[in-house]
Simulated assay, not measured.
Amino acid sequence: MIILGVILLVIGLVAGISILTTIGIILIVVGAILAILGSTGRAIGGRNHWF
C-alpha cells in the first residue's frame, strides 16, 4: 500500500493531477499506520496479519 501511494504521489506531482497526489498521500499514511500496528503485534480488524 505504501508503494502504491508513492507511485500515485509521483505520478500526481509529475502530471499535475491533484487528486492522484491526494490519494497517494492518503495511501502512504494508511499504509504506514497499518505497518506500525502490524509490527507491534496488534490484531487489525480481527486479524493478526493485515497483508
Rank of each mutant, 00 (worst) to 15 (best):
L37H: 09
A35I: 09
L13Q: 09
V10D: 02
G31H: 04
S18H: 07
I28F: 04
L4W: 08
I17M: 08
L34G: 12
G38A: 12
T22G: 08
V29F: 10
I23H: 02
L27E: 11
L13W: 01
V30K: 08
G38W: 01
G31Q: 02
G5L: 04
A43M: 14
I7W: 05
I23Q: 02
A15W: 08
G45F: 07
W50A: 12
H49T: 12
I25N: 03
L34I: 12
L4D: 07
I23Y: 08
G31N: 03
I44V: 14
I25Q: 02
G46Q: 06
V29R: 03
A15K: 14
N48F: 10
I33V: 15
I26P: 04
I3P: 00
A43P: 09
I23T: 14
A35P: 02
W50Q: 06
L27V: 05
M1V: 09
I7N: 06
A35D: 11
G45P: 09
N48L: 15
V29A: 15
W50I: 14
A32V: 15
L9I: 01
V10R: 06
I33W: 09
I2Q: 02
T40Y: 11
I33M: 12
L20H: 00
A35R: 05
I19T: 00
G5P: 01
I17D: 10
L8F: 09
L8M: 08
R42E: 13
L13I: 13
